[in-house]
Design a binder for these strands. Structure first.
Lengths: 349, 349
DNA sequence: CCCGGCTACTAAACCGGTATAGCGTGACCT
DNA sequence: AGGTCACGCTATACCGGTTTAGTAGCCGGG
């Protein structure tokens, strides 16, 4: 039964033409008469011929695969809700295109650069996604040197020479702060992400700006590495202040859930004593008690759009950046009016 | 600067030998004198030569990559704590071997089979990991037909012709039930996973067995798809019983966290009114309130061992199955003595 | 009638490795 | 001294595509 896979030579012989012509017919190149083209494609279909990826890769030096390098320590990786969903979105596009995704998970910056080098050096991929943008990112130069097409996720510096797929998370943070201010909160803190990551930094600065717009004095900001452990620590620290915040805006859901745990452990009721907002709208965030008010994005769609953008960049040498619908606030049960001590509000109004 | 990559021909010319000999030297084949081998390797190093993966793939028809196909609906994928950590473990091994991981995320069974076919047909991978084993799994036959080496994750039927990397989760479940029985619980329920997945089914049957061993009558079992939503529904259902359970053993952490949320929403105190155990030992489970008593496995190590096993299977044509250290109970704060109504215990002792 | 140019196609080089057959040299054996 | 064999190496076919140069045949124009 399971014979050797037919090659282009088999197709050529069966169709009575040269193998070059088969190649032309397959790739819609001109110079093949309509009838011959039809016949070749028929024969190819009958024989069940599928061009060999490795042979094609060798002669065209393309791999028909895209790369995603994720830099996360193994301890933290499970907590990150973004990547699995993002990858699912990417795959939904790649599957129809007959392309594959090569994934690399690395623990640190050095390994990350090495990984890009290997991916490019081995021509394993035709292009890569760039996640967790950092300011002064060493990858920008490297990718340019390697001539590897790349699409950035998130809003890069204008100077960055890659198209990007962005989602305005500023808007979500602003909504969250406005929502809390409307409820009457004035001491609002922010448990921010890694300031070296651009989205961490951006959420932070939009928090500041939103506070200013709400007419509140700049809130306390704690920097973290986005992990639940850090989120818990940050929360403890905030709650031990002499005048603790009445609301905390977290930069992602796992930290918010950890913060919720800390608050409850200390006997605080959420939202009666403390309001909490998350970020990402992960599945689980709707099932904790109280259900988390969070800022939802759509990482699956993000993946789809990023994949399409990268494919276009590879095919046409250029691609437009895309702006996704902004992250929106999803009000659930973890936010409410602050406890009745309103001294601070009065003092500043 | 950035010249064309050197090829084996450049190395041969520079070293003054034929390119066949360079190939021999590189691959530690016999028939090369020690001095010549040394010289060739030196020249290769000086030139910065790296063999072309595609050329090598073409002539050896191997791809130096492994495949992982994950079947999850996009909505659920983020909630699964296993894969990211598992992948991190796999990567830590592959990175040192110069191999890559090709990832495929598919929504349903048909796409899953198609994905394996494509991966094999395109020789994209040299072998695959088999996750979420199901009874009468259509993949077993397919992989045999495709002659694709595979390593199964979890304990397959003895009939399954692949080596496997297993972790005895039976032990963890048994410990959890014993722990709860020791505390005095007698009405213990189990929120199980998908019964069509082998690990779902196995956790379920070991729950039954542990109950029997503890001298308790078989507890209520609810089947789910492992999602937080299902976990919440199942919990609601159990708590609405006329005699609700005093403890619930969940088949994974997200469901346990969702269950915790439901319980708290109904005004139950955990663990005073209801004890809860999870499964997986995810990062976040330690930060909810109360911290989740859970059964810990080590998915990162699992990934490492699975990768090594698959590589050995590919290289040597055969590999031993591996048994990982059993999952162990990690007692935290979500389990405690049952509420004082002990009628049922007395009735059965 | 001859030439130019277009169309449809073939032949062969090429991508960069691996694998095999063959060849010259020196050591060993009888 | 001649034959055999192992060793170290070269030349070349091969993997399965793409791509380029070249050619046969046909048509139209002058």
């Amino acid at each position: 039964m399971a014979e050797r896979k037919p090659t282009i030579t088999d197709v050529a012989r069966t169709a009575g033409v040269s193998k070059g012509l088969v190649s032309f017919a397959l790739n819609d190149k001109p110079g093949v008469s309509p009838e011959t083209r039809k016949r070749i494609l028929e024969v190819a279909g009958d024989l069940g011929w599928r061009p060999s990826l490795s042979a094609r890769s060798l002669s065209t030096s393309t791999s028909y695969a895209l790369g995603l390098v994720i830099r996360r320590k193994p301890e933290v990786i499970s907590a990150d809700p973004f990547f699995p969903a993002f990858i699912a979105g990417v795959e939904s596009v790649l599957a129809e295109e007959g392309r594959a995704l090569v994934l690399s998970v690395v623990p640190d910056a050095a390994a990350e650069l090495r990984s890009y080098r290997t991916l490019a050096g081995d021509s394993r991929v035709d292009g890569v996604f760039l996640t967790d943008l950092r300011s002064n990112d060493a990858r920008f130069g490297l990718l340019a040197e390697l001539r590897l097409p790349a699409v950035a996720l998130g809003r890069p510096d204008p100077a960055v020479p890659f198209p990007s797929v962005q989602l305005d998370d500023t808007h979500g943070i602003a909504q969250a702060v406005a929502h809390l201010a409307d409820l009457g909160h004035s001491r609002i803190a922010h448990v921010a992400g890694d300031p070296h990551m651009m989205h961490g930094g951006r959420r932070r600065s939009s928090f500041n700006e939103a506070m200013r717009e709400a007419g509140l004095e700049p809130g306390l900001i704690v920097e973290t590495d986005f992990s639940a452990a850090c989120g818990a620590d940050a929360t403890r620290m905030l709650l031990e202040k002499r005048r603790p915040p009445t609301a905390i805006v977290y930069a992602n859901d796992p930290m918010a859930i950890a913060g919720l745990g800390v608050a409850q452990q200390r006997g605080l009721r959420v939202p009666a004593d403390l309001s909490i907002t998350g970020f990402d709208g992960t599945d689980i965030s709707g099932y904790v008690f109280p259900a988390l008010t969070t800022i939802t994005s759509d990482p699956v769609e993000w993946g789809r759009v990023a994949a399409r953008t990268l494919l276009r960049l590879i095919a046409e040498g250029t691609a437009e950046s895309v702006e996704l619908p902004p992250a929106a606030l999803l009000v659930r049960a973890s936010t409410g009016p602050p406890p009745s001590d309103r001294g601070t509000v009065a003092a500043h109004s």
